[in-house]
Nucleic acid binder design. Sequence first.
DNA 1: TGTTAGCACTCTTTTGGAGTGAGTGCTAAC
DNA 2: GTTAGCACTCACTCCAAAAGAGTGCTAACA
Lengths: 342, 342
Amino acid sequence: MQLDERKKKILQAIIRNYLETGEPVGSRTISKYTDLNLSSATIRNEMSDLEEMGYILQPHTSAGRIPSDKGYRFYVDAMMEEKDREIEEIKEVYLEKEDKMDLLLKQVAKVLAQNTNYATMISAPQYHRNKLKFIQLSRVDEHQILAVIVVEGNVIKNHLISVDEGLSDETLLKLNILLNTNLNGLTLEEINLGTIAVLKQQAGIHGDIVSEVLDAVAEAIRADEDLEIYTSGTNNIFKYPELADNQKASELITTFEEKQSLGTLVQETLADENNTGIQVYIGNESPIQSMRDCSVVTATYELDEGMKGTIGIIGPKRMDYDKVIGTLKTMMHQLDDLYKKK
Amino acid sequence: MQLDERKKKILQAIIRNYLETGEPVGSRTISKYTDLNLSSATIRNEMSDLEEMGYILQPHTSAGRIPSDKGYRFYVDAMMEEKDREIEEIKEVYLEKEDKMDLLLKQVAKVLAQNTNYATMISAPQYHRNKLKFIQLSRVDEHQILAVIVVEGNVIKNHLISVDEGLSDETLLKLNILLNTNLNGLTLEEINLGTIAVLKQQAGIHGDIVSEVLDAVAEAIRADEDLEIYTSGTNNIFKYPELADNQKASELITTFEEKQSLGTLVQETLADENNTGIQVYIGNESPIQSMRDCSVVTATYELDEGMKGTIGIIGPKRMDYDKVIGTLKTMMHQLDDLYKKK
DNA sequence: TGTTAGCACTCTTTTGGAGTGAGTGCTAAC
DNA sequence: GTTAGCACTCACTCCAAAAGAGTGCTAACA
């Protein structure tokens, strides 16, 4: 069977109505709602077809229809396709300038949650091409050396090293020069056993310190493994009865608290390089089990070359996709502006 | 009216039974439950007295009794009083050694949540007596200077400073010496306008850099204002019907997500210096509005001199106080052991 | 005087049946 | 191809009756 123009119109009308009300939509409603001038009986026939095709379904025999995942998918795709989607009205999404990255990210999550009334998450940018930029050892007190490691992208890591006997300023200077000369500009892969052996040999009796510094360097460079994720507006899920029953809410809350599994969503989004930068996961399309009754809209942001992160908005399947996508886009622009000004 | 021995026994029996079942307790149940060998009629008379005294209350006329906040308070106090509370059985609370503080804290929260089936929170230790220990400026590249600030307790803070023209190694060395000589060992209060003026004057044309470093120092020392709080097991609240209705659950979840207000709980606990280190807040006794239907058990831990933090367990009023307090104590010991071994 | 049996009473919860309303599917006519 | 009409389905609401848990009170007992 074909999805002709009329069926499309009816399907869209059903979905739009359902998005608003959250109640199954009957044939009479559509008959009055649209400008098709068809009787409810005709609509019923069409709806019967649409159901057969899998776009809509009936919660029970004598109820109206609600969209299926396939129906939502059609709707979202159609919406995204109208790519001449005029400059989306700049909704009031205001970010205040924040000098600390984590505060900025928390703020983004919060502002989005407040604007959309859905739950939100944002991952801190992951750094790629991580080269070592600078190492500095300094004496903090008699028995402690502080190693400061700066990685490209200005990620800074500190590491304290305990030493038995004090080191002279001279030794410290030598070690500093040794480390910087040999390591700067290298990536984790480039620091191989050869480099390490040379370093240790040259360090002589201070080989232990070099080892410890190298461990810290390794950790600094692959620090993006445990990626930081901030969430906001988790409580919004209670605004949607279809998510608010104890079982589902509990699972969702757990997912949001143990940010871990949200990571898979981030990976998925970053991996899937599509054109617009906005992706929609409906129901089971989402990689996260507990979100099978949700829709997830994600966007990838890029602050600086290689510094990419993911923003996600999680709500019921009948979320206001139009508004969410608009808000997300606006937010991206704001982030861009903010970051470039800095 | 007096709370004689028999009344106490009956009150405890009521509370214990209610803790288990969560259902109002009737006179017949108590008559069979206890070893008092009293008929239900007698119990009824006693219950009537207890209600008049405010220890228990009736949800409605023809229902059994449930403990009031005052009743819980009596129960908890009585429990805490048996201070010869034998070495509480070491429940299996296992912490794995973690080198990173934040991971350790997250683990503590998680383990507690799993063991008790309640929601938990833990605040990162707050540092007091914050003296400046060490400052180090180093050049990262042509236009950036990295300031590393170490505060007593080995809290480290990094701050990047942009400079227009490059600084010579010599200048940097001078600045380092200048800063360290004048600032080390001082607290925030001790760095006054006088010190600042002297510093700036001596720094000459590099006064800007000194200002920026001072700002960073100030921030490092009072960093404990935005204290870090980790939570776990928020979803456990769904296990208790009296907390699981949407309205309450939503409020609680919000409290846990916006860790901010949990801070007041931490402050409260740290301020109230009592003997055992364990405190119980029942219902409205808690400083947090959204926890008026909960009980909160808190403990203060101290890893090192002046490094204090708070652990909190949040559950329904009918929580298993005995077990919670036992588990908390065990956890404190484990933390002690772990930290001393390191 | 404290304890108990007995009974009327209260109030919640469960059950089931009747009624209502929204909506469908089918058929026959236009 | 479209529509009016009608029988039918099913969730939901309402109500009344019944069941069940528990109380308070009274009178009797040791």
